[in-house]
Nucleic acid binder design. Sequence first.
DNA 1: CTGAAAGCGCTTACAG
DNA 2: CTGAAAGCGCTTACAG
Lengths: 340, 340
Amino acid sequence: MVNKISMKDIAIKCGTSITTVSFVINGRANEKKISETMTAKVKKVITELGYQPHSMAQGLRTGKSKTIGFLVDDISEPFFSGIAKYLDEKATASGYKILFCCTGNDPKKASELISMLNDRSVDGYIIALAEGVEQEISKLLEKNIPMVLFDRYLLDLNTDYVIVNNIDSTYAATIHLIKNGYSRIAFVGPQTTQQQMIDRCTGYQRAIKDYGMVERVIYLSSPIEHGGGFWDIIKGNDKPDAFLFAANYITMQALRLLISIDPKLLEQFAMISFDDIEILQFLPVPITAIVQPLEEIAVGIMDILLTRLGESTQEAKIHKIISTKMIVRKSSDNRNVVRA
Amino acid sequence: MVNKISMKDIAIKCGTSITTVSFVINGRANEKKISETMTAKVKKVITELGYQPHSMAQGLRTGKSKTIGFLVDDISEPFFSGIAKYLDEKATASGYKILFCCTGNDPKKASELISMLNDRSVDGYIIALAEGVEQEISKLLEKNIPMVLFDRYLLDLNTDYVIVNNIDSTYAATIHLIKNGYSRIAFVGPQTTQQQMIDRCTGYQRAIKDYGMVERVIYLSSPIEHGGGFWDIIKGNDKPDAFLFAANYITMQALRLLISIDPKLLEQFAMISFDDIEILQFLPVPITAIVQPLEEIAVGIMDILLTRLGESTQEAKIHKIISTKMIVRKSSDNRNVVRA
DNA sequence: CTGAAAGCGCTTACAG
DNA sequence: CTGAAAGCGCTTACAG
């Protein structure tokens, strides 16, 4: 990093002061009534020398780092890395850079990371909340630091967030199964207090109730136990004829479990997965999926965050709900019903 | 970001100077012969007030940002996001943060991003090189900025890098196919000048030559053309009985192509994929894979980079070659040979 | 053993 | 129309 060009160099070369140079750089030449001759000269020298402002000096002075903190459990999960890609694109276009952090589902690590991001003076946060960091979130809220939650949210925390229409999505998916003739539909989800998971279950439950069916909610334990609840249910007399999986990792867990017992089992149940993953298309019976539009979610997040970053006073919180779409594949058509 | 505590606050509260506080913070109390009483007092106040150094001020003063730039085509690709996760873990543990950037396979964007990272005074770079940015890389090299390349590398660029033993891997994979009775083995790769792809092809070619077989190299075009070369080859008289795919995206392209023509085709060929992806295990005939150990690669990268960041003079470049391992699945056993 | 002071590269209120 | 100067929060050479 030798010989970086500074505003001083520009000023000297132009025979002016760094104040003038600064005004030109920040587009305040007009406002500050810098002569056009000087403005042009400064601009010319800037491109000639390839001057780039020193972001840390700027940051120190302005208190803004043009950096956004992004917190998720695991960046290598396709949903998060997909979102990350689009976020990065939007952020870069607006002069921001994103610091990605993985909490590994550990609340302690999460709060350490928040504190670390705070040290680095990030201007805002994008967070898929792990359970147990409500306190840290509250602290940030009090400080009025811009923050957008996504994927997960907390009812009792007054924040901006972007989520999908979880209830409607599983409601529609359940009805899709019912319409295709399935009558023993099970919802398979994780044991959790995460609001989005509760919502997904709620959508399912409402549909089941509206159609006067029997509710079957299964909590899949992780790591998977062969002898455990799922297997008992599958081999029981009153076994389900259709599954609605609450998230892609739940789908994967269930698929692994079924395959490890007997790959043929895959063909005996109707299935719908919340979240599409490439694998679903390549199975012997391709699986229907509820698709979360990643780019739309990312755009929603950045729109809100950029607004906040430009605001002086906090307006009312924004809650953006994005619609999923269902991609129907063979696994949920009525082929199975005949057999059942 | 109100009322951040500064060294000045500590100094006042301790009745000393910020110099002393700084020495204590930087662990130079002994060296600078600060009294134990004062050292203890300062430390106590620091934890009491929850002081955190202001990283931008530090950065401005020291010229170090404790930040690493990470450049790949697309962070949402499983190979890269997997690497990213482990890198982030290691970096955080050493007080560094990583700025992830996606070049989207666009050399122009790549050089813009490098310039942007440069503005942000990143201390080092981790790069999976896209073609066409050799010049920018060279510039960084000249400036002696620490940089580790991975996955891809350039023979004529003298840099640190971490790659896998590409040649040996495909050599072994090819021989595995030969030993299992396949005799018309095709290598399927992208049309590219990327060294690692050339190496993978070389390994295949050597094995074919050593066993006196006929070389069959297929360049898969993207987007896939139905009527194109691949289909001609598959339906021809002299069609291959085994495929070695050069990368996971090539595997996916080929799978999509085969499935779109006829899913049964999947069972008619032996297959090995460079890179393991979850999908391979779930196919009707699970596909053998050459596994790149992500964590080991990430550790290798960070080890080199952290060494460089701590060095004053550049030692000789480090080239770290990591061994892959092959996970043999049903797709490469000799089941097909009987039929052929 | 400890402190005053310079300076990293910016921005901006103030003065002319 | 333009510039001198203060200050953001640190680190460190220098002086006592």
